[in-house]
Write a protein that binds this DNA or RNA. Sequence first.
RNA 1: CGGGGCGUAGCUCAGCUUGGCAGAGUGCCUGCUUUGGGAGCAGGAAGCCGCGGGUUCAAAUCCCGCCGCCCCGACCA
Length: 590
Amino acid sequence: MRYSQLLIPTVKEVPADAEIPSHRLMIRAGFIRKVASGTYTYLPLGLKMLQKAAQIVREEMNAAGAQEIAMPILQPIELWQKTGRDIDYGETMCKFTDRHGRENVLAPTAEEVVTTLVAGSVRSYKQLPLNLYQIQTKFRDEFRPRFGVLRSREFLMKDAYSFDTDITGLEATYKKMYEAYCRIFDRCGVKYVVVEAESGPIGGSASHEFMAPCPTGEDIIVHTEDYSYAANIEKAEVDSSTGVSPVQPDTGETPVLPMKEVHTPGAGTIEQVCDFLKTKPEEMIKTLICTDGSQAIVAVIRGDHELNEAKLKSAADVNHIELADDETVRKISGAATGFAGPMGMAGKPGKVIIDHSVAAMPAGVAGANKADYHVRNVVPGRDFPLEGDNVIVADIRNAVEGDARNGKPLQFSRGIEIGHVFKLGTKYSEKLGATYLDENGSAKPCVMGCYGIGINRIIAAAIEMGNDKNGCILPPAIAPFEVEVMILNNDSAEVVAEAERIYNELAQAGADVLLDDRDTRAGAKFKDADLIGIPLRVVVGERGLKEGNVEIKRRTDDKPTMAAATEAVAETLKILGELKSAIRNPQSAI
RNA sequence: CGGGGCGUAGCUCAGCUUGGCAGAGUGCCUGCUUUGGGAGCAGGAAGCCGCGGGUUCAAAUCCCGCCGCCCCGACCA
């Protein structure tokens, strides 16, 4: 295609509201423009990248035996009420009432529709396994859209849903999808690590996330140095022997002091209490009052630790958890927020969940359940019970520096979630009646899996990982063009003719090539080519052509290499082939 | 939803404290010169100063309300 005919509005100025490199560069390179918070227009180059990534996804999904379908974005809310997910998704779901007064949703995902489809179309085990997917716009009214297209309210997602007769079948399908995902991200040229993940409101028994490692990522990856264990921090489990209190253990030789109430006026946070009492956060016992909507769930963790809501949910065996409001806190603890303690909690309605690391403390400082007071020398097991009908000791905190898994120390890094695979089981098939008749004629629910890929995030992650001060450095598989042929001197008939020849021959050979035929200064063309990040550049200029040469330069090269104009096409295709086959990812594994 | 910031030319921003002609750079258009890493000179077009109300002789500027956008937090596959 010809540059002069494409809408590629590159900009020199850094957009004021873009914070991270991918967002800045996608705007600067003319890939996207913002329409409103969390919604973007994709311009020709940006759309081309999305389509290339989507095509790779499509090819690998088809190769793995999945079939492409198209489901509606507009869905009746009744479907979501059947599974209760209208509640689970809550405000995140875009809803509206149509002219007939019917409530509709703009789909954030499609389990309900696809499962209903299968319920009505599949009768026999002979029709299974089945794997259906689509590549389609999804809507989520995020609390806080940010980071450009990384967290937007409208985005392109590949969502696949598998139906098997039993768990063994699901395992096989899951493995197939997992492997297809590896091939997809390999082919796209995006680095990734696979981590264990929480399944969240989708529900199900197991899941893995594909993370593009990147310091600007929103997710925290917890892993051993060799990646033999890697998990999202929401999921990461720690060896229970690690992370125990550094406080001197009670050897029985030092007398155990009785509890002592101390006045701590206005000190409601861990930091304030530590300042006031000259204690360390790891000597504090933090008591968080939560609720599942009907009963109180009291979480007890060490002062320097963070509560992990997913772990708390599973320890308490509830579907939903949130921090209680001040009024509830006062009712349960008898004091303002900031002064709750575990003493006496076990006798109240609800559940008390105590983290392992608190149970291991010889003594600590806790809130007194009385405004402006804390208590020293609180001994777990003596001053509050570690067992009982409604008391559970469990792992309910986030992993921290110093924790280990399988005896190996854990490290922390950040990542962008670009893909997610789930084993769903029969949660949806049972609720929506997706059953089949087995060999014996008895009806059984399909065993499901679901598999998502954020297409926009593939693009953003690739730019996030591949950029320098001059612009994007894109993998050839998803770059808007593989090669640019640049006409350096538009007023030279020979230069123009030679550039056109090379451009036409490259295009005929199947290369995706852009001809920069704009009648503008050379500097501007160089800057734009670098900004867009086209992997390979062929410059046809008067100076070189006098000697019968053109210049060939990879985006990553410092200097161009000269090639005979007559060899330019062959040489370019050769380098392009090398670039395309060189793509692999260092730390994918697992 | 809580905290903070911002809203002025297509873009990046100054002007607001202390009310008094609507500004710069960049981009865009025209002409001349230039032509291998975002050229120079000259000329030009371009604004509901986010919206609504108030104070005032006079409001981009001060006051009130609303809307939008960004960041942090909370929340969230």
